[in-house]
């Protein structure tokens, strides 16, 4: 201890204090402050970049989910459209079928009606002709044959038979 106190040099202590003080101030100004600031900036930058990357990844996932959703929607829409078209087609076909049936029925009915009326007319015409023919025949027969009573009767009878045949 004695030796140490004797070795202690106040002058060196003083010089050291001044040098250390100046050194601390100089180093703070010219070295530590810019270095620590740059380190801090760099670390903040790295952190920021990492955060941004995470954010971008999240965004990407969102985007992907969005895409998926849109795709699904589109698919659904297409399906529904296809279904609609199919329905429409079927409807059209059935409609057409019904219409065609109706038309056909109508035509058939008309044709039948026409046939019926034609038939009627034909029958009427025939009757008229038959009647006319019968009258003519009757005239002829009557003129020729109405000499004998038997022959007249015979004739009437065969004629009547023919008439009922129609």
């Amino acid at each position: 201890m004695d030796q140490l106190l004797n070795d202690f040099s106040p002058g060196l202590f003083f010089m050291q204090a001044i040098i250390l003080l100046i050194l601390i101030l100089l180093m703070r100004k010219f070295a530590w402050k810019p270095i620590l600031n740059s380190l801090q900036d760099r670390e903040d930058g790295i952190q920021g970049a990492l955060d941004a990357a995470a954010e971008a990844k999240k965004e990407m996932q969102n985007l992907q989910a969005d895409n998926e959703r849109i795709l699904n929607e589109a698919r659904a829409e297409r399906d529904s459209m296809l279904k609609e078209a199919k329905e429409l087609k079927e409807n059209m076909i059935t409609d057409a079928k019904v219409e065609a049936q109706a038309e056909a029925d109508k035509i058939v009915a008309k044709a039948q009606a026409t046939i019926a009326s034609e038939k009627k007319a034909a029958i009427a015409d025939l009757k008229n002709q038959v009647a006319g023919l019968s009258v003519e025949i009757a005239e002829k027969v009557v003129r020729k044959e109405l000499s004998g009573k038997d022959k007249q009767l015979e004739l009437v009878e065969t004629m009547l038979e023919d008439v009922t045949l129609n």
Binding site: M15, Q16, I19, L20, I22, L23, L26, M27, F30, A31, W32, P34, I35, S38
Partner: peptide, 17 residues
């Protein structure tokens, strides 16, 4: 001490720059 101080100033101000 002066040498050490000067060395530090040189090295670390170079790092700062």
């Amino acid at each position: 001490m002066l040498f050490a101080g000067l060395l530090m100033l040189l090295l670390f101000s170079a790092l700062a720059r």
